[in-house]
C-alpha cells in the first residue's frame, strides 16, 4: 500500500515576533509533513508556538522565512486577497470559544462561509441543512447561539467549518471550553469527519485525553517538533 500524499508540507519555517526591538523566535527551522486524511494532534506547553504553527497552516499568518505548501498551494506566494479566497475554499476553522456570530441563527452562522460562493439561496440552504444534520443539530437551525449549550455551539461551529467541504479542518483547543461529556461528543464528531468524510484534521490541544483521540500526536517545544 502506498503512503498517502502530504497535504501539508512545511520546510525551513522560521517565525520571529518582536517585542519592541527584541526578537522572539517562536518557530525555528521547523519542518512538517501531514498526510492527507490524517487526524493529528499537536501538543505542547503554553508559548511553545502551537497556535503560531496552526495559523501558518491555515493561512492566517505568514512565516518569517521558509515554505508553506498546503493542499497544493504555496501560501507564501499568495496575496492577502488570494489567501482569503483560498481559506474559504480549503480550510474549516474550529475555535476554542466557538466564535459564532451572536446576532445570527445557527443556520445563518453555518451559511456565512457560503456567502463567499456563487451558490444560490436554495443551494446554500441545502448545504446548511446537510452540515447541521451531520453534527446532529438539524432541529436547532433557528436557534441563536445564546439559546444553545456550549457543546451545541461547538457543533454548530463544526458545521460552519465543514459546510464548504474544506480539505482540512484546523481546530484550536476545540474542547477547551467544554465539559467532559460535550468534549467527548465534539471529538467523536471530529473523528467521524475524519473517518467517514476523509477530512484532514489538525488539532492543537493541551488535553492529553483529547490528543488520544487523534491518530498522530506531535509535540512542539521551544519552537521545534519533538
Amino acid at each position: 500500500m502506498s503512503e498517502p500524499e502530504s497535504i501539508v508540507t512545511l520546510s525551513g519555517i522560521n517565525k520571529t515576533f518582536f517585542r519592541g526591538k527584541e526578537p522572539i523566535h517562536v518557530l525555528e527551522n521547523l519542518a512538517l509533513d501531514v498526510p492527507g486524511g490524517s487526524f493529528e494532534a499537536l501538543m505542547g506547553p503554553s508559548g511553545s508556538g502551537k497556535s503560531t504553527l496552526l495559523n501558518l497552516i491555515a493561512g492566517l499568518d505568514r512565516p518569517t522565512s521558509g515554505s508553506v505548501r498546503v493542499a497544493g498551494a504555496d501560501l507564501t506566494k499568495l496575496s492577502d486577497g488570494q489567501l482569503a479566497k483560498w481559506r474559504s475554499q480549503t480550510i474549516g476553522f474550529v475555535f476554542q470559544s466557538f466564535n459564532l456570530i451572536p446576532v445570527l441563527t445557527a443556520a445563518q452562522n453555518v451559511e456565512l462561509p457560503l456567502l463567499l460562493t456563487q451558490l444560490s439561496g436554495p443551494e446554500r440552504k441545502k448545504h446548511v441543512e446537510t452540515a447541521l444534520r451531520i453534527v446532529g443539530l438539524e432541529d436547532r437551525m433557528d436557534h441563536y447561539p445564546r439559546q444553545l449549550s456550549g457543546g451545541q455551539e461547538q457543533r454548530v461551529a463544526i458545521a460552519r467549518a465543514i459546510v464548504n467541504d474544506p480539505k482540512i479542518i484546523v481546530a484550536d483547543e476545540p474542547t477547551g471550553d467544554l465539559d467532559r461529556k460535550s468534549a467527548d461528543d465534539v471529538l467523536t464528531l471530529l473523528d467521524r469527519l475524519n473517518k467517514e468524510l476523509h477530512k484532514t484534521i489538525f488539532m492543537v490541544t493541551h488535553d492529553p485525553a483529547c490528543a488520544e483521540r487523534a491518530s498522530v500526536r506531535r509535540r512542539l517545544d521551544k519552537g521545534a517538533l519533538q
Binding site: A84, S88, Q89, I91, F95
Partner: peptide
C-alpha cells in the same frame, strides 16, 4: 474586533 477576525479567518476579504 474579535468577530471581524473570525470573519476574515473563514475567508471574508478585507473589502467585505
Amino acid at each position: 474586533t474579535h468577530e471581524y477576525g473570525v470573519l476574515r479567518a473563514i475567508g471574508f476579504p478585507p473589502g467585505q
